[in-house]
Amino acid sequence: MAKVLVVAEIKQGVLKSSTAELLSKAKAIGAEAAVVAIGSNIEGLVPELVKAGSDTQYIADDAGLELFSAGPYAACVVDAARQFGADLILFGFSESSKAAAPRVAAQLDAACASEITEVAADNGAFQVVRPAITNKVVQKVKVNTDKLVAVVRAGAFEADESIGGTENVVKLDIPAPDLKAVIKELVSDASGEIDLADADVVVSVGRGARNEEGIALVKELADDLNAGFGSSRAMVDAGFMPHNKQVGQTGKIVAPSLYIAVGISGAIQHLAGMSGSKVVLAINKDPEAPIFNIADYGIVGDLFEVVPILKEELKKVRS
């Protein structure tokens, strides 16, 4: 039976939904499933890790692991993978995963697949499915090694609440810090806000909003809807929005029930991050904007006029 090690995704002490989704997938392909959790002050998460479906919990808990550093993080995963004898190592989709997964693969002499949407074990040989070429195509990839490290695209798998697991905690040795790449400072952006990846509704702002004033207007719409607040790259590069709010090929992948694109043209690199959304609403003053080619509902108009009306109308229906 294949053995799958899932790397727990923990943000600000909270276990993210990807962990249960990946563990469910592991069990669905008939594998024995373990989890590795890395961070500071995370031992309290063990019951949740068990409930999410793991049968062994490898824990690396140390104040030195509070800030993400790819070297030590990868070392913990490699250690857990060796102890468990993992054939498949699954990471959730994040910048940290993208930085650590290739290191883990190189150290284990495993294959490495990014942004997979499906994985199957066929007679012990893994096959994955993943988008490529800026989401323009999908590829089926055959893995030739017996071990695979994969980063799973956000929203690819669903959690099966019924699986459950058993508690079997293994404490990992804490790796030495990376003295050759030292994090001096973390300039954190707007923590307490709703995490884009988890949000059921995402409102994103584009260059059409022009400036801080425009952004504030769109942000109010997001707040009214209790939505995640995202951005196109144009507004990130202009310095108006923080990097971790960027939706798209080099940013976050989101798949909410409702995605509202405000003043965003719909470049393929932006679409690559949000085209999995269930329903898309676009507001753009240019009737030819490419975003309308993929939006379920499109309002052609000036966002400075439309957004205030939209807020009022939404209030009416929601009350």
């Binding site: 910048e95 790449a181 994090i183 001096k184 973390l186 300039v187 971790n244």
Partner: peptide, 11 residues
């Protein structure tokens, strides 16, 4: 550009 924000790293 990391998950928790911008990391300033001396390498």
């Amino acid at each position: 550009a990391g998950d928790a924000g911008t990391e300033i790293v001396e390498v």
